[in-house]
Design a protein around this nucleic acid. Structure first.
Lengths: 222, 222
DNA sequence: TTATTTTTTTAGATTTGTCTAAATTTTAAT
DNA sequence: ATTAAAATTTAGACAAATCTAAAAAAATAA
C-alpha cells in the first residue's frame, strides 16, 4: 500500500508522540505538524478508515499494529538517509533533518534496503537515534552520555544533544566526530569534567557540559 | 522558487519533446504524461502564469529560458540519481528510471551538488545520456554505438539502447558493463560484427545488433 | 471550398488536504 | 453542580490537480 507524504507525516508524528503518552491528542498533533486542529480531525478520520489507527472522537488516537509498522519504516528511511548525508555527502549533523524529511517519502523498499547495505547497516543516525532494521526491529542501543560512562569503558560517538554551533566547533577542534571511538580515562568529581582518549591521540579533557551532551553507543554499534 | 512534482513533470516532458520538435502539442504531452488533454490545457495555463513557458491556445507550447533552466536541473537530478543507484547501490540499468522519477523531485540544491561530487562528477547516466553540470551545462559527449567507432579507437561503455533482458544477459556474459573500457580491434563487413578487446581479456566478437546498441563515450567520460 | 475528422479548449465535477468560523464536548474551576 | 475555559469536531469553503462530456477551432480530405 502506498500513502501520501502527508499521511505518512501524520503517522510518523503520532508514532513519535506516542513514545511520550499512550494516547495522542488532536492539539498535540496539530502542533507537531504545524497545522490546525480541524485539519487533524479531518485526516484522522481518513487514516482510521485505512486502519492505520484507532480513533474515537474526543478520545485521542493510537496507532494500530499496521500503523506502527508503517511508522517504523518511515523512521528507518529518515534515519538511514540522515546517516547517508552525513557519512557520505559530508553534511553537518544539523542540516540533514530537513532533507531527510523529503527523502523519507521515496517509496522503493528495495532502495532503502540497498542503501542500508551500502552504509554497512548502521545502528544509529547522526543524532544518536537507533535505526530500525529491515524487519522493523529497533536495535537496543546502549547509549549514554560520556558523563555516565564508567572509567575505562569505551564506545563510539553516535550523537550529540546540544547541536549549537559552538558545541560543534569545539568538537571539531578536539577531533571528535560521529563514529569516533573514545575511551573514558578519568572522571573529576570537582567539576564533572572527563578525560577521554581517542585512538592515536593524547588524552584530552572535556567539560561537564560536553560530557553530558556527547552521546556514545557501546557494545553493538557497527 | 519551488514547484510541485506535477509541474516539474510537465516541464521535463516539454523539455524532452522539444528536442524533437520546436513546439510541443497538447496531445503529445498528454501522451507523455499519461494524462488527458484537458488536464494538460489546465496545467499549461498555470505554468504560463509562472513564466515557465510560452503558450497560446491551439498554438502549442515552448519553454522560456526560465523553464528550460528548471528542466535542466530536473534532468540533472534524475540522471545523477540513476548513476548513484547503479554505481553505488548495485541496481540494474533497467530498474533505476522509476526510482529516479521520485528522487528527482527532492528539492535541496546542495544535496544534488554534493551527490555529484560524491559520484566524482559523472558525465553520463547509465543509459548513456549526458548529465548537465551544476551550472546547467550539458557535457558534449562524443557518444557513438560501437558499430560506428573506427578500428583501433577505444572508449567507455556508458549506455545501451536495447535494454531487453536478453541483451543484458548477453552483455553480462561477455563481461561488459557500464564503465567498461573497450577497444575496437576489427570490423567485419560481411555481417557487421565487431571484434572488441576489454582490458585483461581475450578479444571477443559482438554481433551487429549488439554493436549497434552498445553506446560508448570517448574522450571525456570521467 | 465545403465537409469531416482531429485536436484542443471550456465547463462543470471530483479528490485530497487544507482552512476559518461556529458548534459541541470535555475538562477544570469555583 | 454549575459555570467558565479549553479542546475538539462539524460545516462550509478553497486551491491543486485531475477527470468527463460538450463545444470550438484547426487540419485534412473530398
Amino acid at each position: 500500500m502506498k500513502y501520501s507524504a502527508s499521511k505518512e507525516n501524520y503517522i510518523k508524528a503520532i508514532f513519535h508522540l506516542q513514545q511520550e503518552q499512550e494516547s495522542v491528542t488532536t492539539n498535540a498533533l496539530a502542533d507537531a505538524l504545524q497545522t490546525k486542529p480541524a485539519s487533524v480531525t479531518d485526516m484522522l478520520k481518513k487514516l482510521k478508515i485505512e486502519a492505520l489507527l484507532q480513533y474515537e472522537k474526543y478520545r485521542g488516537v493510537k496507532l494500530t499494529p499496521e500503523g506502527k509498522k508503517l511508522a517504523v519504516q518511515i523512521v528507518r528511511k529518515h534515519r538511514l538517509w540522515e546517516f547517508f548525508l552525513v557519512e557520505k555527502l559530508q553534511f553537518g549533523w544539523e542540516e540533514v533533518h530537513e532533507i531527510a524529511e523529503e527523502l523519507e517519502h521515496i517509496s522503493s523498499k528495495k532502495l532503502v534496503d540497498r542503501l542500508d547495505a551500502f552504509l554497512d547497516f548502521p545502528k544509529a543516525d547522526p543524532h544518536g537515534d537507533p535505526i530500525p532494521d529491515m524487519h522493523g526491529k529497533m536495535p537496543a542501543l546502549q547509549q549514554a552520555a560520556v558523563s555516565e560512562m564508567p572509567v575505562n569503558s569505551s564506545g563510539t560517538v553516535n550523537g550529540i544533544s546540544d547541536q549549537s554551533a559552538d558545541m560543534l566547533e569545539l568538537l571539531a577542534h578536539k577531533n571528535i566526530q560521529l563514529g569516533t571511538r573514545l575511551e573514558v580515562k578519568r572522571k573529576f568529581e570537582v567539576d564533572g569534567s572527563v578525560e577521554i582518549k581517542i585512538r592515536n591521540q593524547q588524552p584530552v579533557n572535556i567539560s561537564e557540559h560536553v560530557a553530558k551532551n556527547l552521546l556514545v553507543a557501546y557494545g553493538n554499534k557497527k
